[in-house]
């Protein structure tokens, strides 16, 4: 972890407060650029500790129907990689501290030019990057440029990641480790807490980084349970589903959409913040 980075500072502050964090995911440009920026601006006050912003992709292989649809809406509305970075830059004018992590697939980054993209992202105010289809075996070409740009490269650990593989996965990781709590796509099943706890302990044995847990967390109650065992809970599909549910027949946002999303994030934050993390200040 780069101590000076926003992600490192945020987790340090969470530890001091002895509470877990809430990571909220929305797709950039969903359902349209203006609404998406409005949503993003409301997230910190609503209780998001870290903002994860999806970079829409035509072929989101690891995502379930809810986030697939969000990607399609954003692309239809004209979202591009450049626009996503511009969104971040606009957000940064008002909020200098909330960490922003971009999440997506490798092709749009590769086509943009990996090093060029990372520098542009840093300039816009991005702190971390997750590339779902970039396992450590293929990560070399991104690790160097990310380090040079000063962006945390965040890796996923899955239930299928055995102990023999864990050191490899966390080797290049910075920022935090993202534990995918189910074998499956986003927004489907939920994991049993005992399994998550065991996995988080397994990861901690191999890495000093904070552990965020995601996939399948849909309610404040689940967020609270995850917050009791992990350093942060990531909620994506459940938030994106609120967006999808508050579009009119033509796909345009209803007037209450942004408020609904903010209030749902508020309830998730209450859940997470009510949790007693098992790990005290380090």
């Amino acid at each position: 972890m780069r101590e000076g980075g926003r992600i490192g500072r945020r987790f340090a502050s969470l530890r001091q407060q002895r509470r877990a964090g809430l990571v909220t995911f929305v797709t950039a440009g969903d359902p349209d650029l203006a609404t998406s920026i409005d949503i993003m601006r409301r997230l910190p006050a609503a209780g998001a500790d870290i903002i994860e912003l999806g970079m829409p992709f035509s072929d989101p292989m690891a995502d379930g129907p809810i986030i697939q649809a969000a990607s399609e809406r954003a692309l239809r509305a004209g979202q591009t990689m450049r626009r996503t970075l511009d969104m971040v830059a606009a957000f940064r004018q008002e909020d200098a501290e909330t960490p922003i992590v971009l999440m997506g697939y490798f092709n749009p980054v590769y086509v943009y030019g990996t090093a060029r993209f990372l520098f542009a992202a840093k300039k816009a105010g991005v702190d971390g990057l997750i590339l779902v289809d970039l396992p450590p075996e293929e990560a070399e070409e991104v690790v160097g440029p990310a380090r040079n740009a000063g962006i945390d490269l965040i890796f996923l650990v899955a239930p299928t990641t055995g102990d023999e593989r864990l050191p490899l996965v966390v080797k290049h990781a910075s920022g935090f480790v993202y534990y995918v709590s189910i074998t499956g796509i986003t927004g489907t099943a939920s994991a049993a807490l005992v399994d998550v706890t065991h996995a988080v302990e397994r990861i901690r044995a191999h890495s000093p980084l904070p552990v965020a847990v995601g996939f399948g967390i849909k309610s404040p109650g689940q967020a609270r349970a995850i917050g009791s065992t992990a350093d942060a809970a990531v909620v994506g599909s459940a938030i994106v589903a609120k967006i999808a549910d508050h579009l009119d027949a033509k796909g345009a946002p209803r007037p209450d959409l942004v408020d609904v999303v903010a209030s749902f994030v508020g309830s998730l934050a209450e859940g997470v913040h009510a949790a007693r993390p098992r790990r005290g200040p380090v």
Binding site: P135, V157, A158
Partner: peptide, 20 residues
Amino acid sequence: ERGHFGIYGGRYVAETLMPL
């Protein structure tokens, strides 16, 4: 041994699938 033909090929899959 890592599945590359020059710069092509490889294993660009989600971590869940890597062990498989």
